[in-house]
Design a protein around this nucleic acid. Structure first.
Length: 509
RNA sequence: GGCCCGUUCGUCUAGGGGUUAGGACGCAGGAUUUUCAUUCCUGUAACACGGGUUCGAAUCCCGUACGGGCUACCA
């Protein structure tokens, strides 16, 4: 292993649409290792396929990274000395190296049309453009030099293909999987430069990683098979001694069923598999994000970090700083990890519970305002403090606590139907009066007052508390009644109670 | 089909020649609590299969099965 002083890792997505959670995990691992080693985290946009380019995808990627706190040190929108960082803007660079490959006999021109190739594949389903078949195809290896020159001069469409050597063993050392080897005869002569002049992933990737001085490549397992071609390219270009180290990550699998996680899996199950929501052309192509679902990005990051990696200790809650400290490639797993939304929610709940009220108020406010309420900050914060052990995702603040801001329209009929009797109106009117008479209105005093009332009237807690709670909130669930009463104050409590008792009594007749 | 990668509770995983195979999520039960939630306790449940190697294998080796990835002028 060569000594690498300037550690540089990149996240290199393709702007073909929304980036799902697997991409974010790849970005995260790259980020963690870069930061741990004191290196740079770079964002490169691999937009070499003009047909698959989707407007807005690049902005989405950047916003998603920002939301997760994985801010690049360098790259598209972030500056740096190795730009441009968008591959479509580096077109000329790739051609130069593709031609160098040709000059050194490591690549050749191929004039076969897509149709011709399709016909070959139709005739032979195992057809591969390789050492065996290239002699039967239309390329600069089989055609006379003057004919090739002629075609080139006439601007005939062509591609440049890598000339894979025969009978070699290509060995790669993967940081996750160890030594893996491929027989070169199994490798096809992949296209390096397409007929539109753009490079393929393989070409652009190697050239850019070299030029951008990338030291480690952490990417998904789907790239493992083509790594052999990549190693060959480094060799042919004379860059093998500074070739980055590879680490291929296990894939993230579908929540249910088989196969790797895909865009549609979230929609089917009503769960997010994207960091941010994405509006596609159709409802089918639109997806909810973790952010919009009500997740704290710290929880998403923590959850993702543990999908395929773990520190080997029993600690599960890790801040990003702790992750940077604890992360290690050696501890990345080898088998695919199933996406488990229940676990994701658990992480979120942990983060919400541990957050301070001011932070929570900031997160919850939009959901409250969305329902037409503008609570003042101190009230909102107190509310969040009372609710935070009772929410899993942020919208739960409203769903489970809407009665803090509005009068309930439905209440727990079961409890009231059972406990609200003909004697109740008078009894509870007296309770309200005695609470009104309290000199101080804090939780402890209210509680003492209620307890006194209970014992004076020979009642039990169960006779009073459920009615009081439902009268105040409409539900049997929620924070301590006395805490809520103290927050609301005498006037509001009386108002709520009188309204509710009237409702209950009306139902009695 | 070919090539490559993988396989420990339902899920995420620890462990890696001798362990009561550990933790977390989920689920179930219990304790605490005015309710719900939190917290705590308990329970549930796993080394894919077959052969080796070895005194001893979940752990090493080989097969098989199963799963996954790749096999484009997509990334």
């Amino acid at each position: 292993m060569t000594i690498m002083e300037n550690i540089r890792l990149r996240f290199a997505p393709s702007p073909t649409g929304a980036l799902h959670i697997g991409g974010i995990r790849t970005a995260l691992y790259n980020y963690l290792l870069a930061k741990q080693l004191g290196g740079k985290f770079i964002l490169r946009i691999e937009d070499t396929d003009q047909n698959r380019f989707v407007p807005g995808a690049e902005a989405y990627i950047i916003e998603a990274l920002r939301w997760c706190g994985l801010v690049p040190d360098e790259g598209v929108e972030f500056g740096g000395e190795y730009g441009p960082y968008r591959q479509s803007e580096r077109k000329a660079i790739y051609r130069q190296y593709a031609e160098e490959l040709i000059k050194n006999g490591h690549a050749y021109y191929a004039f076969d049309t897509p149709e011709e190739l399709d016909a070959r594949r139709a005739a032979d389903e195992n057809f591969k453009y390789d050492f065996n078949t290239r002699t039967t195809l239309r390329n600069s290896l089989t055609m006379p030099a003057n004919e090739v020159a002629d075609l080139l001069a006439k601007d005939a469409p062509y591609v440049i293909r890598i000339h894979v050597p025969e009978g070699e063993v290509v060995r790669i050392h993967d940081l996750v999987r160890g030594d893996v080897q491929f027989q070169s005869n199994e490798l096809d002569d992949k296209v390096m430069l397409k007929s539109d002049g753009m490079p393929t992933y393989h070409m652009a990737n190697i050239v850019d990683d070299h030029l951008m001085k990338i030291t480690h490549v952490i990417r998904g397992e789907e790239w493992l098979p083509s790594t052999a071609h990549h190693v060959l390219l480094y060799r042919f270009l004379g860059w093998e001694s500074t070739m980055p180290q590879f680490a291929h990550l296990p894939l993230i699998l579908k929540p249910t069923g088989q196969g790797k996680l895909s865009k549609r899996d979230g929609t089917k199950l009503g769960i997010p598999v994207f960091p941010l929501s994405w509006k596609g052309e159709t409802a089918e192509e639109s997806f909810v994000g973790f952010r919009e679902y009500g997740f704290d990005p710290r929880a998403v990051v923590n959850f993702l970090a543990f999908l395929g990696w773990n520190p080997g200790t029993e600690q599960e809650i890790f801040s990003i700083e702790e992750l940077i400290q604890a992360f290690s490639i050696e501890k990345i797993g080898k088998s695919g990890a199933r996406f488990d939304f229940e676990k994701a929610k658990w992480f979120n709940q942990q983060y919400l519970m541990a957050s301070d009220n001011a932070h929570l108020a900031q997160l919850a406010r939009p959901y409250i305002e969305q329902h037409g309420h503008k609570p003042d900050e101190s009230f909102l914060q107190a509310f969040c403090g009372m609710m935070k052990e009772r929410v899993v995702v942020i919208p739960d603040f409203w769903t489970n606590g809407h009665y803090f801001f509005e009068d309930f329209t439905e209440y727990d009929d079961k409890t009231i139907g059972k406990k609200w009797t003909a004697d109740s109106p008078a009894l509870f009117a007296r309770l309200t009066e005695s609470l009104d008479a309290l000199p101080v209105y804090d939780a402890a005093t209210i509680q003492a007052g209620v307890e006194a009332f209970i014992s004076e009237n020979g009642l039990k807690f169960g006779d009073v508390l459920p009615i009081l709670r439902v009268g105040l909130t409409g539900t049997v669930k929620g924070p301590g009644v006395f805490d809520m009463m103290a927050l609301w104050g005498k006037e509001e409590v009386r108002r709520r109670l009188e309204r509710s008792y009237a409702l209950f009594t009306a139902k009695l007749q």
